[in-house]
Write a protein that binds this DNA or RNA. Structure first.
Lengths: 202, 202
DNA sequence: GTCTATACACCGATAGAC
DNA sequence: GTCTATCGGTGTATAGAC
């Protein structure tokens, strides 16, 4: 977490260049894959020389972890925001199905196989995200008793898993079973979050 | 599909060395990630010189696609095998939950973002695998009417999605919701494939 | 803060000998 | 079939000047 390993002189965390480099890293990851995520590429995108990347970051590993942190905290903010709206489950589902950049996610997944630091951050994110969803689901189910007999944590996993697979496959161009699954989710949402918020029997 | 692009002299497809190189590629991918999947690494594992890799394969892309093909056809064989057993749904589920090497899969997923050739093969595999599962599910549901009102293709997607997420998260060390979801699957399987095969009301 | 310059390793792919 | 040798390029990371 803290920074100390090299004797090298280091630039300030959070500065404009620091952030620009993380943005460049994210774009590279999204557009070119993790094989192309190099200090030279980042410098090129930002418009500076390669050396500067190592002024702001100790290693490429640090770049990767910080890039993930940026994406993850952005996503957690969105999740919190959606969870506080009138029909949180629908909002959360729409968020997951719409915002999931499945390419980017799969790059991070592969990276996390090899980076201990990233793996720890990914685990923390999953648990935090899942907790937000679980809480929203539990509240919604309490409002409509008997709607579903699956435990909220299972339902959260189910939804996350489906959203990930559906977006991933859609990006590939596969859609076997998507209609049926989306209809199923729609059916559940209609039951547990009917049109007029609060009115469970319209 | 056919081979022609370089003037270089090429070795026979399917020979012992050819296969050994694909095995080495798979092992590298699994153990070190796609960043380490290089011709030199493969040669080292097989115990030959780097040049020989380019005698058997035109490009690294070809190595990647062939490696995938090997894994995919192995998996399809297993799926076919399971689908022909007494309780196919349980066998298929157990296969997916046990055999899924989530690390390897995530490497291939990331690779497929950048390789057109691999992407096409991945799509073909998903569709073929899903068809096997769908057929088995449809047959099982026909045997136990009223057990489930989700369409077989949706159920196949649901199961694939869950198996992937559960194995992936388990590999990371996360298990939120896994108990609930596994219980749900177990409940469904008990209903649709009771202990004594063929006896639907024990 | 940003640069030039540089060490050193590894990459894909090829030519051509044996 | 398998090898030595090699090209041109890219990678991480550092030293030290301005």
């Amino acid at each position: 977490m803290t920074r100390a390993a090299t004797n090298r002189r280091m630039g300030p965390v959070g500065s404009a260049n620091w952030q620009a480099m993380l943005d460049a890293a994210e774009a590279t990851l999204r557009e070119e894959g993790y094989g192309a995520l190099t200090s030279r590429r980042i410098a090129e995108r930002v418009g500076v020389k390669q050396r500067l990347v190592y002024y702001y970051f100790q290693t490429m590993e640090e770049v990767i972890v910080e890039t993930w942190r940026g994406c993850a905290s952005r996503e957690l903010d969105r999740l919190h925001d959606m969870a506080s709206r009138p029909r949180p489950l629908r909002e959360l589902w729409d968020l997951c199905i719409a915002t999931h950049d499945s390419r980017l996610i799969s790059e991070f997944m592969a990276l996390s196989n090899r980076s201990e630091g990233l793996r720890a951050e990914v685990i923390a994110f999953i648990e935090e995200a899942r907790a937000i969803q679980e809480e929203a689901i539990a509240a919604a189910l309490a409002r409509t008793p008997g709607a579903c007999d699956i435990a909220p944590d299972g339902l959260a996993l189910l939804a996350s898993s489906l959203a990930l697979s559906v977006t991933r496959e859609a990006a590939l161009g596969v859609d076997v079973g998507h209609g049926a699954v989306l209809a199923l989710v729609e059916h559940f949402l209609a039951q547990v979050e009917p049109e007029a918020p609060g009115a469970n029997a319209p």
